[in-house]
Design a protein around this nucleic acid. Structure first.
Length: 128
DNA sequence: CGGCTGACGACCT
DNA sequence: GAGGTCGCCAGCC
């Protein structure tokens, strides 16, 4: 009880088989010079509560994937895993696209934040 | 077929 | 501002 039974109530679940590929596809829509966040990707997929799941999805990306994973930063505009080789490469790639990175954080993050087309009209209090 | 891996966000104190 | 807790896993070895 108290547990939602998708087998009875329906696909209430936003995540599911293929969720991973969905994240990758969505991320590929982000143009160079722009950045997005795990939360924004999650929100575009239905709910921000799955932000962590989005992170897991990116973690599973193959090294040769053409998904611009480096354009994904956290909600504060900071690169995750600061200090790690991954974060350093991310910073290098962002700079290569003209995006400044200082202190492990994207310079002018808010202005470079990409906006995904709203797939579902959701009552949002005038943007954060 | 079982077990491990792995990149956040919101809220509370 | 900082620290801790809880919250929809799927994919690969």
């Amino acid at each position: 009880m108290t547990s939602y039974d998708p087998d009875r109530h329906g696909p209430v679940r936003l995540v599911g088989p293929g969720f991973h590929a969905r994240v990758h596809a969505l991320l590929r829509l982000v143009p160079a010079g722009s950045v997005t966040t795990y939360g924004d990707l999650a929100g575009a997929l239905g709910s921000r509560t799955i932000a962590r799941q989005v992170g897991f999805a990116l973690a599973a990306l193959p090294p040769d994937s053409r998904v611009p994973w480096h354009r994904v930063v956290d909600g504060s505009g900071r690169l995750t895993g600061a200090g790690s080789a991954r974060a350093r490469e991310q910073a290098a790639r962002l700079r290569a696209e003209g995006i400044g990175v200082a202190g492990g954080r994207v310079v002018g993050f808010a202005a470079r934040r990409h906006v995904f087309p709203a797939a579902d009209p959701r009552p949002r209090g005038a943007g954060r």
